[in-house]
């Protein structure tokens, strides 16, 4: 469904991604693991269209993404949970969710909102609360909820587990694990390799802007390098 070929991305003169290639298949959950500064967020930002690659190609269902602005990508089924949430701070929980389904009809919005509220009852109790007054964890839930509102085909997630308590991390990962049953593919970048590797179908390891490893979770957890770097020995 998603193919990335030889992607090079720069900030000014400094190149951060040096020829990244990866794929996400239909109904597949894929993780990109990497240390701080490896270029994970840069990858996600490029895929949603916030950054323009200097070289390389991204395709969604064989259609090149690169000429499309972010909103056109959303129309084609992408959704993003960006690093640190990026909520619409002064708007209510409800309005944030409504915006998540901006391209959908009102009836759909109500239905999708129920789904999100079932997933995160904490949000249901705070429909009218202003986003910036939510706790860190609640904000993260809202960011995930907002992305789910558009019923995406491919969900891009930047550090989903950040700021969530362990039980919520488990719940969110469980939700992600079940997304393929609803026809949703997921690309998530994570530092929490331990939890991520439990639910993904495949994973890549990104180091200093290069993909250095790729494999099934089992292969990666058995890999001594991964063990040392991401799974705490």
């Amino acid at each position: 469904m998603l193919t990335v070929e030889n992607l090079h991305v720069r900030y000014g003169q400094i190149e951060v991604l040096h020829g990244v290639s990866l794929q996400v298949g239909e109904s597949e959950v894929v993780a990109v693991l990497g240390a701080n500064g490896a270029g994970k967020s840069t990858l996600i930002k490029t895929l949603i269209g916030w950054l323009k690659p200097v070289q390389g190609e991204c395709k969604l269902n064989h259609e090149p993404l690169d000429p499309l602005p972010a909103w056109e990508r959303v129309k084609r089924g992408l959704a993003i949970v960006p690093e640190s949430g990026r909520l619409f701070r002064d708007l209510s929980v409800e309005d944030n969710l409504r915006l998540g389904a901006y391209l959908h009809r009102d009836e759909d919005i109500r239905k999708r909102m129920e789904v999100v509220f079932n997933l995160f009852p904490a949000l249901a109790e705070r429909k009218k609360q202003i986003a910036k007054t939510l706790s860190g964890g609640e904000q993260q839930m809202l960011a995930i909820g907002r992305a789910m509102m558009s019923n995406p085909r491919l969900l891009l997630i930047d550090e989903v587990s950040m700021g969530l308590m362990p039980i919520l991390v488990k719940r969110v990962f469980k939700v992600i694990e079940e997304l393929p049953q609803h026809g949703v593919s997921v690309l998530l970048v994570e530092q929490n390799a331990f939890e991520a590797l439990k639910i993904v179908h495949r994973a890549y390891v990104l180091e200093n802007g290069h993909i250095v490893l790729e494999g099934k979770p089992q292969e990666l957890t058995d890999n001594p390098l991964v063990k040392a770097a991401y799974l705490g020995g």
């Binding site: 972010a70 708007l91 915006l99």
Partner: peptide
């Protein structure tokens, strides 16, 4: 609503489909 969203975070507004 799209104006309000854009006034808070233009990039994010485009990433919800505006």
């Amino acid at each position: 609503l799209s104006w309000q969203a854009a006034s808070m975070d233009r990039e994010m507004a485009s990433a919800v489909g505006i």
